[in-house]
Design a protein around this nucleic acid. Structure first.
Length: 298
DNA sequence: GTTCTAGAAC
DNA sequence: GTTCTAGAAC
């Protein structure tokens, strides 16, 4: 039995994080005894065992070799500032986990996972993984699946995703018209079944330039009452034209056969904070959140 | 997408 | 002094 720890090279980190993602979701957890996600990135795994990462797209072979220095169990992240040479409680916990390590595994990348770190990062592929996890699925049919947004920006915030791999709005064409209409129907269904649908209003739409890969339709209640709503980008992405109504996407597909996103959408994210209910301008996020309480008392 | 943190704003 | 934002790293 051995323990994988985070090593110094970026590739190793990617591999370990990839493993954790999959193992955490239980996609292929053969012979895995324990997983500690976060501070003590610990994965027990048999030497030579092959794991398939992201639904068997990215196979790795796990090799093990002795660490002659014993120093290679360091767990500090590369971007850590030079001035911070004391151990935080978090670092101490990681070091404690590392001390349990007898051998240091080397992950040999046979697949594509490392490319994600070069193009947007592995995190941008997270939806592809979440949507496959039965525990996350609130609804599914032969065309789409619905999951809860991992960091909901309101009391109710779901994502409708097609099974078909469509990276973004840009990739949509007239052939997707029926699919996108179906996504809207399922979104409406989700709102109908919500116990708060009589007291809260909802909007359904797409972000002009989403961070996460794989087309996803946001279904979000308009209270924006959530600790995950933290900054101007969050706010403006749902309350300016950065948020493109599902019906507008359908109409664009029907009339032009494609979806056009206006230039300068990114600038919309920098607009002043403006209440979507009464258009009052607020100077800070905490002030905005306090103001929202007047529109949506608990 | 989130987290972290330097430094701006107060 | 504290609060808050914005940009970089992931």
């Amino acid at each position: 039995m051995s323990v994988i720890t985070y090593m110094s090279s970026t590739d190793s980190l990617t591999c370990v994080l990839s493993l954790i993602l999959v193992l955490k979701l239980g996609t292929n957890p053969t012979s895995v005894d324990s997983v500690v996600v976060g501070t003590g990135n610990e994965v027990r795994i048999k030497p030579g065992q092959r794991l398939h990462i992201v639904n068997q797209l990215y196979p790795y072979t796990i090799q093990f070799k002795e660490d002659p220095t014993g120093k290679n169990s360091g767990t500090k992240r590369p971007r850590e500032s030079a001035s911070d040479d004391r151990e935080s409680p978090r670092e101490a916990q990681k070091m404690k986990a590392a001390k349990l390590t007898e051998k240091v595994p080397v992950l040999v990348n046979h697949g594509e996972a490392q490319k994600h770190t070069e193009r947007g990062g592995l995190w941008s592929q997270g939806l592809k993984i979440s949507m496959q996890d039965p525990k996350m699925q609130l609804y599914k049919d032969d065309k789409v699946v619905v999951i809860k947004d991992k960091y909901p920006k309101a009391r109710h915030h779901w994502l409708v995703l097609p099974w078909q791999s469509i990276p973004s709005l840009k990739a949509l064409c007239e052939e997707h018209c029926d699919l996108v209409k179906h996504m809207q129907q399922v979104a409406d269904q989700m709102v109908q079944q919500c116990p708060d649908s009589s007291s809260l209003s909802f909007r359904t739409g797409y972000h002009a330039i989403p961070s996460m890969s794989h087309v996803h339709l946001h279904v979000i209640s308009q209270d924006f009452d959530s600790p995950c709503l933290k900054n101007k980008k969050h706010w403006n992405s749902f309350t300016t034209d950065y948020f493109i109504e599902s019906n507008d996407v359908i109409q664009m597909l029907e009339t032009n056969g494609r979806v056009t996103v206006k230039e300068g959408a990114t600038e919309l994210l920098k607009l002043p904070l403006c209440c979507h209910m009464c258009h009052k301008e607020l100077s800070t996020i905490p002030a905005l959140k306090e103001h929202l309480k007047s529109h949506f008392p608990r």
